[in-house]
Design a protein around this nucleic acid. Structure first.
Lengths: 358, 358
DNA sequence: CTGAAAGCGCTTACAG
DNA sequence: CTGAAAGCGCTTACAG
């Protein structure tokens, strides 16, 4: 009676039962089902057929007890006012749960509202038996990384938090993201280029800033030619910052914007129009595109030129890197390059800009 | 080697070890730790001291295997465009994980993007061994309820989906929510009262509508005196609907609004001001307040009169009702009444309205 | 009041 | 290629 998991009732088949049905030991059934090479092909097929027929579903809890792993990894979400963060959160949640499920591991979520980012991790570790963590939205030299490494707790990092790391991580090269955008624009003749960046305490934004500066310098443009706006996250923040930068006189305002997100680009485009200017004739706009389904860069007016790296595409690598590492594989770091997609929001720098009046 | 859960390394104490330390059997240690009445008080204290000292933490997986429960309940989130839904989602997530954690159960989350609400449940049941579900945002006669009941899967419902139910649920009386608001307003002399409601396919909104109509009728006011706006979820939807209703001539426009949420109330107040009217002198506003931390009704200008029922307060009851039911307790239905808090956004109906020109 | 035993469902050396 | 056995850490009738 205590042992009646209601959900397995219909097919409460166990290894023992399948074995009995077939005149085999549970051990052989286990090996057959788990694809051990030594089992006879015929036996394997017989076993699989019977398992199917009886609706066998392995008992995860038993598997976990014997393997010593909990089959659960944790993720802690930091709640922000900014609603755009929620969109990316849902995107990651959807992708990660699916990718982890494919590897038979559950994602346990907790919400962090504390000032100290570590307390949520400590609490979660006290409460739950977890095999590891997915770390998101890292800062440079993120304290959570140090904490987890000190305590020998496996994790995978989404993005990059430092150099010469010895833990698994997956992300895009954010320096190249803005460098590529700048190169595209300087190639079109732009010199006064603005960056509307996210919060630089995030590593991704710090890297974007670094890449922006380097690429500007490489193009022979100094700090004076660059406009940097920080902490932009929402459409209206993008709007307001762009509006402000565009209020300068002709020769002093940017002719191009590099935006941290498509949401910000939406605000920038609105600001350009409100200033009576046109995209891309007067102002070019490039953005980084996480490819959130709600906000399609191709549907912008004009269609948005982007560096594109779907957030969703990071989920399976993150899940696999972590699960492989948990199974003993050495940690692998994988940094990919975002794709550049040129659409209608970028064009040559306006003529008058090329030959400034002395 | 396979059995080295890294997280228990520091205190990989087991019942057997505590027993060995004390010259007791694991069985007695188990009983002492679980507070069985039959154990000698001295023994119990000794055991607890030792457990503490050795940093004992019960192995959940083993407990789950032997009790036949997985210790996990599922919740499926339906993603909507509307960002306000995300706020309430995070609020529920925070509260539920905490409340469930206190009962040693984990919340496993999945995201639903399908048209058919049942497929997400089926998929989750295939994949995970779950003890039950938390059902949120029910419709009237929600198909998920029928599905889970048919399959004998325990769940707790947040809200009400029908009458004479035999499953645990917790929520507020939504008919009373709008009835209370209407009564407050009619008591202040208002006759032309608008309801800006949420999507009526949700049970809560259907109930609010019902309560609104009944209370209007009870006050001797007919359908003609009531203005009903539906499907309002965001601030701007509230704004637009109110703007529209307020465009009517003096004798035809509402003098009071009952809003489904504080977010909508924010839009309504903005619309009132944009029409050159004042709250509460010309138009009174009442809203239902879920007490989301981001949106404080008391900080509105003017401070908002509300029916108040913090969403957070529903989490512990939901968790406990479900966990108790899983443990064999009979299902209990608990419907509470939202509190009415009168602040500055409601006032007497404008004088000229009381004596309409014939 | 306490202990020895069985068992949850699985995996995996160890034999054969 | 397959089986018998031990064991993961816990709980809980059953004895005493």
């Amino acid at each position: 009676m205590p042992n009646s998991n209601r959900f397995e009732d219909p097919g409460l088949a166990t290894l023992k039962e399948i074995g009995a049905e077939l005149g085999l030991s549970p051990a052989t059934v286990s090996r057959a089902l788990n694809g051990f090479p030594e089992v006879n092909v015929k036996t394997r097929d017989k076993v699989r057929e019977a398992a199917n027929r009886l609706g066998y579903r392995p008992n995860r809890v038993a598997q976990r007890l014997v393997t010593g792993r909990s089959g659960m990894v944790g993720m802690i979400v930091k709640i922000r006012q900014d609603m755009s963060a929620d969109q990316t959160f849902f995107e990651m949640l959807t992708g990660l749960t699916a990718a982890l499920a494919a590897r038979d591991v559950d994602l346990v979520l907790a919400v962090d509202q504390e000032a100290d980012p570590l307390v949520a991790y400590r609490k979660m570790l006290e409460r739950d038996v977890l095999d590891g963590f997915v770390l998101n939205a890292p800062a440079h030299d993120d304290p959570r990384v140090a904490f987890l490494r000190e305590n020998d707790i496996p994790f995978v990092l989404h993005g990059q938090s430092g150099d010469a790391v010895d833990y698994p991580c997956f992300g895009i090269d954010n320096q190249k993201v803005s460098a590529d955008a700048v190169r595209l624009l300087t190639g079109l003749g732009h010199t006064r280029i603005a960056l509307l960046n996210g919060k630089v305490n995030y590593a991704y934004a710090a890297d974007r800033l670094e890449g922006f500066r380097t690429a500007m310098a490489d193009a022979g443009l100094g700090a004076v030619d660059g406009f940097v706006g920080e902490n932009a996250e929402t459409e209206s923040e993008g709007y307001l910052q762009a509006l402000d930068m565009l209020s300068a006189r002709d020769q002093a305002r940017p002719t191009a914007f590099v935006c941290a997100s498509t949401l910000i680009a939406a605000g920038v485009i609105r600001a350009v129009k409100d200033r009576g200017l046109r995209v891309p004739q007067d102002v070019s706009v490039v953005a980084h595109d996480d490819a959130l389904p709600q906000l399609r860069a191709i549907s912008f007016d004009p269609a948005l030129t982007v560096t594109r790296a779907p957030l969703r595409d990071a989920c399976a690598p993150l899940a696999n890197l972590l699960v492989d590492h948990l199974a003993g594989a050495p940690p692998v770091q994988q940094i990919t390059r975002a794709e550049m997609i040129v659409r209608q929001s970028t064009g040559p720098a306006p003529i008058e800009e090329r030959t400034p009046w002395p």
